[in-house]
Design a protein around this nucleic acid. Structure first.
Lengths: 106, 106
DNA sequence: AAGCAGTGCAACACTGAGGTTGCACATCGA
DNA sequence: TCGATGTGCAACCTCAGTGTTGCACTGCTT
């Protein structure tokens, strides 16, 4: 599954924040609730919840309700898809720019 | 070559902007100067130059001086490296979370 | 039933990213 | 030489993102 180039900047914007990155890495270890995650962060639970919401909108985490608790889980496949899209673009650029360079030298 | 997990959020922050993304895609086609790039954008040349500086600090583009002109060129290999790092993380998460899920069900 | 724990929502403050304009400086071309 | 062109730098403005606090609500737990 590919992500779609249009939404790539949005996804990367979600990834381009140290706090969200820390949360994601933590969630890559095991699912956890906002309150639990906030315990390891120097910011309030509400702030953490907002970051998690951003990650959820970007499709990087999913939620699972357990009674009054909301557990967040990282979605590895989404990250893989982003990686694939990125690599595809990179290869396209490499090919094109190599052609131009060769033409300039030839 | 790997990027280093510490600097990943910074790199993604650079990618997480629509204008910078547009500039990158344009540069993936062919090298160009800030003034040339600004002609295709709805913002001033100075604003474009700033975005290019951000991309340069993130290692996503490189510059090449031609007289009074500064040409920017996309670095595909850097994008490939980011893709690799991302994929590595994703696979690690998948494996760990699968283990946990199996343990919970077993 | 009563209290505690986990969330959600709203109002507010602060900072930095992203934009603009104006000007000075180097370099190419006629 | 001199005007035109491409850059760089600085001052300034605006606003969305990130943080805070306070409060209400819901669902465990005893």
């Amino acid at each position: 599954m590919t992500v779609g180039v249009e939404s790539l900047p949005a996804a990367f914007a979600a990834l381009g924040d140290d706090t969200r990155w820390a949360l994601l890495q933590r969630l890559g270890t095991a699912p956890a609730s906002a309150t639990t995650l906030a315990a390891d962060q120097p910011i309030s639970r509400q702030a953490v919840a907002r970051h998690l919401e951003v990650l959820r909108e970007a499709g990087l985490v999913e939620t699972e309700v357990h009674g009054r608790e909301v557990r967040y889980r990282a979605i590895g496949s989404r990250l893989s898809a982003l990686a694939r899209d990125l690599d595809g673009l990179a290869q396209g650029w490499e090919r094109r720019l190599r052609t131009i360079k060769a033409a300039a030298e030839g």
